[in-house]
């Protein structure tokens, strides 16, 4: 079975390169918009302001320095785990762009994935500029994470991004059946906002709520990578296992729903 595989493997890399480079060029055209998107991710910084004015962090064992690191790390994680695939998918579906995509020998979601990756690359300088500005205004916020923390933190962020991409991909499949898939996404945003650790470290949750949150995929998308980045003590193995299990589950769900959706799509002749 190796013979037919070889040409495919050779063809994959140029495809990836072309996809990424065209998407990057496209995103560069919209860099001002991306700068605004980056700016709209300030929630963890606002929450840092609120938490530093409250004594509740310390009661949960978070020193002011730890709070700062946690929310700065959460800010960075959030910046690089932004997913909007449901919006493009719905748009492509409504505008009838999906049909030509389906005729191509490439799953349309690879295209979306490339767009996301390209957008993140475009985002890097803006996030760096925002952080630089922050440190300029408040030099006390500055800290250098350990090299190992950065390595595992980046890996965890990438994994968190994949998890969010797959989760939203599953929700996006609702576009095949309903015109209101975006409303589902709006509902999904609520547990993400409050259970992921974006607005409060999970350590401050009451034990019951915390256990509940940990049983959902959301803490893996912010709290886990943020804690790795800030250099807190984390169980790396358990964290990555959680990410892998949830991602695997959503991938299977996605593929099943995709097949059913495509069957419905072609049956309707849309």
């Amino acid at each position: 079975m190796t013979a037919p595989r070889e040409p495919r493997a050779r063809a994959v890399w140029p495809l990836v390169r072309v996809l990424l480079s065209t998407q990057y060029a496209y995103m560069l055209e919209y860099r001002a918009e991306i700068a605004l998107w980056a700016l709209s991710g300030v929630l963890p910084l606002i929450m840092l302001g609120v938490w530093s004015g409250s004594g509740a962090g310390e009661a949960a064992g978070f020193t002011p320095a730890m709070l700062t690191r946690y929310f700065l790390a959460a800010f960075v994680v959030r910046q690089f785990t932004v997913v909007w695939v449901i919006h493009v998918f719905e748009e492509d579906n409504l505008q009838g762009r999906l049909s030509p995509y389906l005729l191509q020998p490439l799953h349309p979601f690879w295209r979306y994935l490339a767009a996301h990756v390209a957008e993140q690359v475009t985002r890097v300088p803006f996030v760096a500029a925002l952080l630089a500005l922050l440190f300029l205004l408040q030099p006390s916020l500055l800290w250098w994470p350990q090299r190992a923390d950065v390595f595992w933190g980046v890996l965890a962020t990438v994994a968190a991004f994949i998890l969010r991409f797959l989760l939203q991909g599953v929700i996006a499949m609702a576009c095949f059946w309903s015109e209101r898939a975006l409303a589902l996404e709006r509902l999904l945003l609520i547990p993400y906002l409050f259970l992921s650790g974006l607005v409060a470290p999970l350590e401050t949750f009451p034990p019951g709520v915390r256990a509940f949150a940990l049983a959902t995929p959301f803490p893996y998308t912010v709290a886990f990578p943020a804690r790795v980045l800030m250099g807190a003590e984390v169980n790396l193995g358990a964290g990555f296992l959680g990410l892998a299990l949830w991602s695997g589950l959503f991938l299977i769900l996605f593929l099943v729903l995709w097949r059913a959706g495509i069957r419905r799509y072609s049956a309707m002749g849309a």
């Binding site: 055209e29 860099r31 001002a32």
Partner: peptide, 9 residues
């Protein structure tokens, strides 16, 4: 003008 928001700015 270059297309896109960047060009606009």
């Amino acid at each position: 003008k270059q297309p896109g928001m960047a060009g606009t700015l």
